[in-house]
Nucleic acid binder design. Structure first.
Lengths: 164, 164
DNA sequence: CGGATATCAGACCTACTGACATTG
DNA sequence: CCAATGTCAGTATGTCTGATATCC
């Protein structure tokens, strides 16, 4: 917005501001009531659908949230019949979250529907090269999110002998 | 997380998820009490410091927020003596928000301090080429945020004859 | 009078913290 | 007994909507 240099500090504030602004626009554009589930809920649901069985704590760690916060998110998903809670046979403390058939269907539909505006914006305002630059950008952001931290607190393969 | 294609819909959800995750990590990392002002507040303050005199509504439009929400943000800044409210001499409805000296000082300091963790992450986890690629990527995100919308709801140069 | 701006009041969503129970 | 997991309760933040007053 003012000073020119490209120091990392400058890049950091620019990137943070860009994320804030784009996310605000997304919120404003796909109004709150447009989908029955919030972005946080769909993100958690997708992790359950496409990832290995995880506990609430695992999901929380993956999204950098507190377990209590994720528990609330997962609670809504369960109430709506998108996921089920299954006791871990080998560890009575752990409760695995698994997707229901309905959960899989809804995840597939709403995950895309929810970002319809952003999809259109990408198609309409970016040229071919810029679209091609997007995946590397996403990967950079993911790496920054996981910087100096376990990339994905993997669901402890302690119970079911699923190869990690 | 599962399907491979690079369709715009897929890019949109990946980008949205990456933003959510990186922002969560930022929140978790630079704890809530680390700075006296929130990211929203500092963003608005920077706009006031480096932009032309704007009303609350102008600032709200630039950040894709409702005027009432921005009013609350600006209210905190005023309470803390970072900005002042000045009646527009030519339009009794408008109240211009201007930065105080303290506001300019605090903006300069805290804007960088607040993203210290992200700055370090950029330096430590990205290589030279990736850092160099960042500014264009940030610009792409800004363009998406402003897609099909006034790029910056410019402060109506209705009053003071500042050239638009 | 109609449109724009600001303000007051109430609500919600999402995440956080603290305290406690249960299990390994 | 200690560590890890889950749950309950209360709190805080940032945003939204609706209603109202003032000014062009």
């Amino acid at each position: 917005m003012a000073p020119p240099p490209n120091r990392p500090a400058r890049l950091a504030t620019d990137l943070a501001n860009a994320m804030t602004r784009l996310r605000s626009r997304l919120r404003a554009e796909s109004g709150l009531g447009s989908a029955p589930w919030s972005r946080s809920q769909l993100t958690a649901l997708n992790r359950v659908v496409y990832g290995s069985p995880s506990t609430t704590s695992d999901l929380a760690a993956a999204e950098y949230m507190r377990p209590q916060s994720m528990a609330q998110t997962v609670g809504t998903l369960e109430k709506d019949g998108l996921v089920e809670r299954r006791a871990d046979p080998d560890d009575g403390r752990r409760i695995l979250i698994v997707a229901t058939d309905k959960g899989r269907r809804e995840a597939e539909y709403w995950t895309e529907a929810r970002e319809a505006w952003l999809t259109a914006a990408i198609e309409n305002t970016l040229d071919e090269d810029e679209v091609a630059a997007l995946p590397p950008l996403v990967r950079i952001m993911e790496r920054l999110a996981d910087a100096d931290a376990p990339p994905f607190t993997p669901p402890r393969s302690r119970a079911s002998g699923v190869s990690s």
